[in-house]
Write a protein that binds this DNA or RNA. Structure first.
Lengths: 344, 344
DNA sequence: TGGCTAATGGAAACCGGTGTCATTGACAAG
DNA sequence: CTTGTCAATGACACCGGTTTCCATTAGCCA
């Protein structure tokens, strides 16, 4: 117990020869201060190494400086990207990030979240997909009086509460690219049921086929759940088809890696025998052999923007009124997993 | 501003007809209470949905319930595993996890950390490798009076402050396995300079060669920095050697993936032409083709144990005196990237 | 000289808990 | 019947800030 007796606001006031109220004014950048006094107090604060007690502040202000990140996303890389983007926005502010994974599908999920929000009285939360797609969750935040911003693959809330990517259009473009290369039998590996992102990506895929007037038999659509293993299973079903698809669009990279894996096991050469496109552009895409053509999902930028939205109007640095961009565009990254179909 | 007027301890006291101090006693499970009163108060708490304000508690107790995770680890999967292990330990307690990435190599790293610890007055921090290997960081925690537990690849602190894996022995065993398969020219891809894990793994590698009386020319050792790209560079140097090594031990999976990538680019078949072993057993190891033989690093368990150590003796659930295990053993996971050398 | 405003101080209450110490009542011992 | 002890509980200050409500001082202008 080395009782690190930190200086309090009273110490600063005493040394600076002002009242604690004035020190408080300095800390909170009140405009009613002579530059003279301000400088003197700031000097003393620096000398003493005074740091206001965040707990005391939180208590008095009825607000803390904790931002929650709520996720139930199985992809480690995606979560890390979001954390990184968030922390970028929070760096230099007084906010800290508190991470809360949720157990998707658990019956107590909503209660867990409520408990988390109520106990900690967070300043706000950032909702990552797929929880973010759950309207009940957003309503819960509202009812508790906790700010929130949702991230998603389509706009499903007001600009104030939402940061979205346009997955549908991005996938449409990617699929169109495959069609442009000459592919006609293109398989689709879906994301999990109930995921908005899965739905948007499917719609984009269908948009492209429709525009090119290509029929999409049910058999070319395989279920998946965003995991590597589900990609293998899906690919095996698709590759058993006669005639075989010449290309596969996978709703994320992880499953695309599974597709590549399964194709290789049957001795198929990518891209000669099969073209593959993924989605996300996680590191795995670049590490695969051949490097995977995919759609870059700007999730880190989205998270950064979402965090800025969350803290907008508080403290000094964030500006209150500038509308952060709400819609992010995903772009096609062409690597080596796509070629014109060999046979036709 | 829906002013969610939450009930306070005073409300509970009034309704239950007791003093707020008694309510406080109930909350903190004081033994000096008649079962009668306790039950009554607990009933009122439940009825009102009362939740103690953590900020007020933190202020009065001069301690908050935030555990920091400090890391400067470039590997997303590793960080996520640690977070998961930590959260497992924290789940159901009143502690929350606050994540703080540090910019390794940055001159202000130490100041950033100090600032973080001092501002938030964290209850404690979990230090992940490689920051955890920095003694100055541990001293900083000490001087600030912040509990800490370090995770590392070798014991470098007292049991109270340390959770370690025995990388050296694990790598020795993995290398011995390669030797047992008949390999004599084995390349080593190092981890970054200054990383304790890199050093331990190198030592284990050398131990095995020494025990088998195999010389280790300097040329078989290639630098790396735990990234995929550095694995490629290292492999290219190693594979240019004449005669070529028949096996490569890579100090982590990420680089092993790079090695596999580079080998494939030269048309080498794994494991026929080259055996590869990695370290970590991140998902990438199983997704590679062929699936990578590697050493499973029980980082999530380590993190869980470290977190339990951190909060031991606080509140009701964690027990104060049970010594959490401090040393974790890594195990060899045999998959398909190792075979006997083809030519000899 | 008087009145008005800006800059600051002082006292006290408050945020919502916890610590210290005093008080109360019951019961066993003397 | 008194006294001592102990369990159960309450009164009140305190943690370290913010806020309210003045009071005070100084500077400026008419």
């Amino acid at each position: 117990m080395q009782k690190t007796n930190r200086p309090t606001i009273n110490d600063v006031a005493r040394v600076a020869g002002v009242s604690k109220k004035t020190v408080s004014r300095v800390i909170n950048r009140s405009p009613l201060l002579s530059g003279d006094t301000r400088e003197r107090v700031e000097q003393v604060i620096a000398d003493l190494g005074y740091i206001p007690n965040p707990q005391a502040r939180a208590l008095a202000l009825r607000r803390n400086y904790l931002i929650g990140l709520v996720h139930d996303n199985p992809n480690a890389q995606t979560v890390m990207n979001v954390q990184q983007g968030m922390l970028e926005a929070l760096y230099g502010t007084e906010f800290e990030m508190v991470v809360r994974p949720l157990n998707r599908g658990s019956a107590t999920m909503l209660d867990d979240l409520r408990h988390f929000l109520e106990r900690q009285r967070l300043f706000g939360v950032l909702l990552m997909p797929p929880v973010s797609e759950n309207d009940t969750v957003a309503e819960l935040c509202d009812s508790i009086g906790c700010r929130y911003v949702r991230m998603g693959s389509a706009a499903l809330d007001t600009a104030e509460h939402m940061v979205a990517s346009n997955d549908r259009e991005a996938v449409r473009a990617a699929t169109q690219y495959l069609i442009g290369e000459g592919h006609r039998r293109i398989g689709l590996v879906l994301g999990p049921h109930g995921f908005r992102s899965a739905r948007e990506r499917r719609l984009g895929f269908e948009d492209a086929l429709k525009a090119a007037d290509i029929a999409l038999p049910r058999s070319l659509i395989a279920d998946g759940n965003y995991t590597f293993e589900s990609g293998i299973v899906a690919a095996e079903r698709l590759l058993d088809l006669m005639p075989r698809p010449t290309a596969i669009f996978s709703s994320n990279d992880e499953m695309a890696a599974g597709v590549v894996h399964a194709a290789r096991q049957r001795g198929l050469d990518i891209p000669r025998d099969l073209s593959v496109i993924g989605f996300d552009d996680t590191p795995i895409a670049g590490h695969l052999w051949p490097p995977l053509t995919t759609v870059r999902w700007p999730i880190a930028s989205m998270a950064r923007s979402a965090a800025l939205k969350l803290i907008a109007g508080v403290g000094d640095n964030p500006e209150p009124e500038v509308r952060e961009p709400s819609m992010f565009l995903s772009t096609l990254i062409r690597r080596a997993s796509v070629a014109a179909p060999g046979d036709g």
